[in-house]
Amino acid sequence: MSLPFQGNYTCIVTYEDTGRIYNLTRTICIKAVASSLDAKPPVMRSPNDIVSYQFAVGEDMQLTCEVYFSYVQNSSNEIWWTINGKRKEDITDPRVNVTERSELDEMNPGAKTITKKLYIKNISPDELKHNYTCSAKNHLGSISRQALIKEKVGTPRYITELACGLGATLFLVICFIVVYHVYWLELVLFYRAHFGTDETIGDGKEYDVYVSYARNAEEEEFVLVTLRGILENEFGYKLCIFDRDSLPGGIITDETLSFIKKSRRLLVVISPSYVHQGTQALLELKAGLENMASQGNIRLVLVQYKAIKNKKKVKEFKTSSICTQCY
């Protein structure tokens, strides 16, 4: 017999008595089952020796027991969990619960798979060491297996500490880069003031910077108001500005050379007006470069006030272009 033919079968008998017709019925249930030759003891699919369960202290534990029962005539199927030899019925802890589910085998009538799950909430360190065993039996035999429980190992402490250290170091490096990018000039000046050597001692110089610029109203205002206000008033440098510091009646060439020799650096305010040949500004640039070159220490600061189109026409700029970072 096959599965499509199982079900309820009804027999109907009709007879007549004193002119009346009666129907007698009887129904029987026919169920298809597997052959007795396929009857076997329970087969436990899980737990097994291959799969282990890992839980951390405080987690919820879930263990699955799955057993296949073949059809055995007049046999009951049993499946249960034990914790240290005790069944669920003997455990009063409300954190421990068991659920059961059955699934019929369509290919083998009467056979089924029973899944029984064990739940324990918020497991303790001692519970991780208990013996959790699933057992099953029918008339042909029984089987038992212990679930392999291991404590879940978290991230090693030294790895966590190393990651925190690297993260903190990276954060500090980024902060330093941002701070240096924004306040680099203040940091340089602070270093020079507290840790750098004092270059003014014994060098015989009177001024920190000699300012060379084109003599026109616009650039004079920039030098005397803006540039002088920042370098002298805010940062404390002593500037030498020819038109301000020179005495009337002197020879311009001699006084220019004298001021340049008394200055530690030459600051050039570059603009189109500056490049006109024969101006005092170019004389200052040429004299300054020659004086510094003779001392073997070129300290030149270029400040572009306006862009120059014909920069190559002035040979001093060809030389000075390589010295913008020498100061």
Score class of each variant (00 low, 15 high):
residue 177 I to G: 12
residue 151 E to M: 06
residue 189 L to N: 10
residue 196 G to R: 02
residue 192 R to L: 13
residue 243 D to A: 14
residue 165 G to F: 09
residue 224 L to E: 09
residue 227 L to T: 00
residue 259 F to L: 05
residue 189 L to D: 10
residue 207 Y to M: 05
residue 244 R to W: 06
residue 177 I to C: 12
residue 191 Y to S: 05
residue 238 K to G: 14
residue 232 E to I: 05
residue 265 R to K: 14
residue 194 H to L: 10
residue 176 F to I: 12
residue 158 Y to G: 14
residue 249 G to V: 06
residue 195 F to W: 11
residue 232 E to Q: 07
residue 152 K to E: 07
residue 208 D to F: 00
residue 214 A to T: 04
residue 276 H to A: 13
residue 181 H to Q: 15
residue 191 Y to Q: 07
residue 221 E to V: 11
residue 178 V to E: 04
residue 151 E to P: 07
residue 202 G to C: 00
residue 260 I to D: 00
residue 231 L to N: 02
residue 256 T to G: 11
residue 182 V to W: 11
residue 274 Y to T: 00
residue 199 E to N: 15
residue 182 V to Q: 14
residue 235 F to T: 05
residue 237 Y to M: 05
residue 272 P to H: 01
residue 196 G to W: 02
residue 214 A to G: 03
residue 159 I to T: 07
residue 187 L to M: 07
residue 284 E to F: 00
residue 170 L to D: 09
residue 202 G to K: 01
residue 275 V to A: 02
residue 197 T to F: 15
residue 175 C to M: 12
residue 239 L to S: 06
residue 258 S to G: 11
residue 159 I to M: 05
residue 172 L to F: 08
residue 158 Y to L: 10
residue 222 F to L: 00
residue 240 C to G: 07
residue 277 Q to V: 07
residue 285 L to P: 04
residue 156 P to Q: 02
residue 167 G to P: 03
residue 165 G to V: 06
residue 157 R to Q: 15
residue 281 A to E: 00
residue 163 A to F: 07
residue 280 Q to G: 07
residue 290 E to G: 10
residue 236 G to N: 03
residue 251 I to E: 11
residue 280 Q to P: 04
residue 230 I to C: 13
residue 249 G to T: 06
residue 167 G to W: 00
residue 232 E to N: 04
residue 172 L to E: 03
residue 153 V to S: 09
residue 233 N to D: 12
residue 247 L to R: 14
residue 226 T to M: 08
residue 228 R to E: 10
residue 160 T to L: 09
residue 289 L to C: 07
residue 288 G to N: 02
residue 246 S to D: 12
residue 280 Q to L: 09
residue 160 T to W: 00
residue 238 K to N: 13
residue 233 N to L: 11
residue 183 Y to T: 06
residue 239 L to V: 03
residue 215 R to S: 11
residue 224 L to H: 12
residue 266 L to D: 03
residue 250 G to V: 12
residue 170 L to K: 08
residue 277 Q to H: 11
residue 230 I to T: 10
residue 264 R to P: 02
residue 241 I to V: 03
residue 208 D to N: 04
residue 244 R to F: 04
residue 215 R to W: 13
residue 158 Y to Q: 10
residue 239 L to K: 01
residue 208 D to R: 02
residue 269 V to W: 02
residue 199 E to R: 15
residue 240 C to M: 04
residue 233 N to R: 08
residue 199 E to C: 15
residue 245 D to M: 01
residue 194 H to C: 09
residue 247 L to I: 13
residue 154 G to R: 08
residue 249 G to K: 05
residue 249 G to D: 05
residue 278 G to T: 02
residue 182 V to D: 10
residue 276 H to K: 08
residue 221 E to D: 13
residue 215 R to Y: 14
residue 245 D to E: 04
residue 240 C to S: 06
residue 288 G to Y: 01
residue 262 K to H: 06
residue 190 F to Q: 08
residue 183 Y to E: 09
residue 197 T to K: 15
residue 209 V to P: 10
residue 291 N to F: 15
residue 173 V to D: 06
residue 204 G to C: 03
residue 200 T to W: 06
residue 209 V to E: 11
residue 191 Y to F: 11
residue 197 T to D: 15
residue 233 N to F: 08
residue 158 Y to F: 10
residue 181 H to W: 15
residue 234 E to S: 12
residue 290 E to V: 12
residue 205 K to N: 03
residue 215 R to K: 14
